[in-house]
Amino acid sequence: MIEAKCADSVMNITESEIRRFLSIFGEMDLVDSQVGRRGSCLTAKGQQFVTWLKGNSILS
């Protein structure tokens, strides 16, 4: 799903790159990754980080 969303936008990113980013974000406690259908979700810290990015015009 993440790969498809990126393909719809200007980002060209592979599944292996997404997995690598999720691993790094998990180490930073920004994402909680689970096996199977539970997938990955933002932690409270991750949600704060995204809010900060949006507030600083890094994300639109």
Results as ranks from 00 to 15, higher is better:
10 V>R: 13
21 F>P: 01
53 L>E: 11
48 Q>D: 15
31 V>F: 01
8 D>R: 11
13 I>C: 14
3 E>R: 11
33 S>N: 13
43 T>R: 02
42 L>M: 13
39 G>R: 03
50 V>R: 05
54 K>T: 13
46 G>V: 06
15 E>T: 14
34 Q>D: 11
43 T>W: 00
2 I>P: 02
25 F>K: 06
60 S>F: 09
7 A>M: 03
22 L>D: 02
12 N>G: 13
14 T>W: 00
45 K>A: 08
11 M>T: 07
36 G>V: 08
4 A>K: 10
50 V>Q: 08
41 C>Q: 13
31 V>K: 02
19 R>Y: 07
37 R>G: 12
28 M>P: 00
36 G>T: 10
22 L>E: 13
54 K>M: 11
19 R>F: 04
6 C>M: 09
17 E>V: 06
11 M>P: 00
7 A>E: 13
15 E>K: 12
46 G>L: 08
42 L>V: 06
12 N>C: 08
12 N>S: 12
7 A>N: 04
26 G>W: 00
9 S>F: 00
55 G>I: 03
44 A>I: 09
60 S>W: 04
35 V>Q: 12
6 C>G: 09
48 Q>G: 06
30 L>Q: 06
22 L>M: 11
46 G>C: 04
27 E>S: 11
44 A>R: 08
11 M>Y: 10
28 M>T: 10
50 V>F: 07
51 T>C: 01
13 I>N: 11
51 T>G: 00
40 S>A: 15
49 F>C: 13
16 S>I: 10
47 Q>E: 14
45 K>T: 11
2 I>T: 04
47 Q>R: 14
38 R>D: 13
17 E>L: 05
39 G>V: 12
19 R>P: 01
32 D>Y: 03
11 M>A: 12
13 I>H: 05
6 C>T: 05
22 L>I: 02
7 A>D: 06
36 G>Q: 10
4 A>D: 12
12 N>H: 07
54 K>V: 10
17 E>A: 14
15 E>Q: 10
49 F>Q: 14
2 I>G: 14
47 Q>S: 11
18 I>Y: 05
30 L>K: 03
2 I>L: 13
59 L>D: 10
6 C>S: 10
27 E>Q: 14
50 V>P: 01
22 L>G: 06
16 S>K: 07
50 V>I: 15
10 V>M: 09
15 E>W: 02
51 T>F: 00
24 I>G: 05
24 I>A: 14
53 L>N: 09
36 G>S: 11
35 V>H: 10
36 G>K: 07
4 A>S: 13
14 T>A: 08
28 M>L: 15
40 S>Y: 01
16 S>D: 15
58 I>A: 03
38 R>Q: 15
47 Q>T: 12
16 S>F: 02
37 R>C: 02
11 M>Q: 03
56 N>V: 05
2 I>C: 05
55 G>W: 02
2 I>V: 08
58 I>N: 01
4 A>T: 09
41 C>M: 08
30 L>Y: 10
44 A>E: 10
17 E>W: 00
22 L>H: 02
22 L>K: 03
26 G>M: 03
3 E>N: 05
41 C>F: 06
22 L>P: 01
56 N>K: 09
12 N>Y: 03
